[in-house]
C-alpha cells in the first residue's frame, strides 16, 4: 500500500513539463537543423522585450523572427547569412554575441582589462605590505627611539 502511494507520488512528477520556453512546433528536415535553430534562437535577442532571446519571448516580433529563422534554415542559409540578415534589419543589438567593432571593443576587452587591473592592484598592495613593516624613520625619530631604548636599559 505504501509502495503504491510512493509510486504515485513519483509518477506525478513525471507529468510535469518544462513550461518556460514558448510552445511552438516546427518541422525540421534534419536534427542538425533543429540543433542550429535552438542555438540561433537563443543567441538572437528580441528587439521588443529586451533581455530575452527570441526563443523565450512571447512578443509578436520574436515570433516573426522565429518564423524567418526557421524558413532560412530550411532554405539552406548558413549561420553567418542568417545573422547578417538579422543585423541588417535590427542592428548589432540583436546578437547576444556581437562582432568586435569600434562600439563593442570595450564590451569584449573589459573583463580581461579589469582582471589585469585587479592583478596589478593586488601585486601593488602585497608589495607595499611586505616592505611596509620597515618604513624608514626620519633622523629625529631615530634619535628618539635610541634615546628611549637607552632609557629603558638603564
Amino acid at each position: 500500500m505504501k509502495v503504491w502511494s510512493y509510486l504515485l507520488f513519483i509518477g506525478l512528477f513525471l507529468w510535469s513539463v518544462d513550461g518556460r520556453a514558448v510552445i511552438e512546433t516546427y518541422e525540421f528536415a534534419s536534427a542538425e537543423l533543429e540543433a542550429r535553430y535552438h542555438r540561433l534562437s537563443q543567441e538572437l535577442r528580441c528587439p521588443k522585450c529586451q533581455n530575452q532571446n527570441i526563443a523565450d519571448s512571447n512578443a509578436p516580433i520574436a515570433r516573426d523572427l522565429r518564423v524567418v529563422l526557421h524558413e532560412q534554415l530550411e532554405s539552406g542559409a548558413s549561420d553567418d547569412e542568417i545573422l547578417a540578415f538579422m543585423v541588417a534589419r535590427y542592428g548589432e543589438f540583436v546578437r547576444y554575441r556581437p562582432d568586435v567593432d569600434r562600439n563593442t571593443i570595450w564590451l569584449w576587452t573589459a573583463p580581461v582589462l579589469l582582471l589585469g587591473l585587479g592583478v596589478v592592484a593586488l601585486g601593488w598592495h602585497l608589495r607595499a605590505r611586505r616592505s611596509g613593516g620597515q618604513s624608514p624613520l626620519t633622523p629625529a625619530e631615530q634619535a628618539r627611539v635610541e634615546a628611549l631604548l637607552k632609557g629603558s636599559r638603564n
Partner: peptide, 12 residues
C-alpha cells in the same frame, strides 16, 4: 504578415 516591417527593422 509584417514582412516589409521586418525588412525595415520595425519592432513596434
Amino acid at each position: 504578415e509584417g514582412s516589409l516591417g521586418l525588412d525595415l527593422g520595425v519592432y513596434g
